[in-house]
Design a protein around this nucleic acid. Structure first.
Lengths: 152, 152
DNA sequence: AAATTTATTTCGAACATCGAAATATTCGAT
DNA sequence: ATCGAATATTTCGATGTTCGAAATAAATTT
């Protein structure tokens, strides 16, 4: 690395640290100011994990949310009570519970999606002709790197 | 946006969502596998907020961590008991408690720093001549965007 | 059809966070 | 200088989240 690249790297690293330290609570804060004051960021991510029109089983959710099944049950209980999700027994295998979004749940899903699109636009919109692929590749590399980390 | 840019945008947005959904628990998981099994990701971020060689007051920390002062007290209690931080009364104003890192705490600080550097390298290392500034600008824009969001 | 496995829930314990009150100290107005 | 208000932190009790173990219910294997 040249001295200049070094500098560029340091600056970017700082920005990245700042971004990662803050996204979570910023989304939480914007949630509190929205009309969905009764859910947490974790609830919102659960809703995002359920997907818009499909359903997920309780165990699928507990895996993607990195929660124990019993903790998942209580998250779902809470969201069901508040009207964001519905439980239905799978007709094929009656042990499994399928979780789907209600209309209200889908509204939250869209809000989460919009939040992410806002971020993606901030990365993207000021790029010049031909620069998009550079950023796309960089972000893809970061994604791959994180995935590699989990295969220890 | 051209159809191709649209595509590029969607792809990047997806990667971003994936990255943000996962960084937290990936760092938590790598922490669990390290020799610091007795602290959480929140503890680690508290340690990062204290800074390497300087000190922070309890209230400064409660602000940057978005915790109430009372919650901050108990986080600090826990970290002090485990030997990551030390409390000292400010000699000028004896109401304030200054929190600093112990040697053990600094080791955690460096681990956190290394984790972030790893991510920054993954973004940076495969870039060609002249592409670094593009990514640097994009990340800077994202950072600014998030900061704007909090001034509602 | 009995034993085993799988999906989920219930329960009790541990821990985190909060808000209100308590404590200690400093600052400001008289 | 002293009293009252303001500030920094801690303590306490209540609430909520997460966990692990045991319970329940349904499917699969033997």
């Amino acid at each position: 690395m040249t001295a200049h690249e070094e500098d560029s790297f340091e600056k970017m690293n700082e920005s990245l640290v700042d971004v990662f330290n803050n996204v979570m609570w910023i989304e939480e804060a914007s949630l509190r100011k929205s009309r969905f004051k009764d859910i947490s960021i974790k609830d919102m991510h659960t809703i995002a994990a359920i997907t818009m029109y499909d359903t997920r089983t309780a165990s699928q959710l507990s895996q993607t949310m990195h929660l124990t099944p019993s903790a998942m049950t209580s998250v779902i209980d809470k969201l069901e009570k508040k009207g964001y999700v519905v439980r239905t027994r799978d007709s094929k295998d009656r042990r499994v519970v399928r979780i789907g979004l209600t209309h209200k749940g889908r509204t939250v899903f869209r809000a989460h999606e919009a939040f992410h699109r806002g971020m993606a636009h901030s990365l993207f919109d000021s790029l010049e002709e031909g620069e998009a692929p550079v950023v796309e590749k960089a972000v893809g590399d970061l994604q791959d790197y994180l995935h590699e980390l989990i295969q220890f």
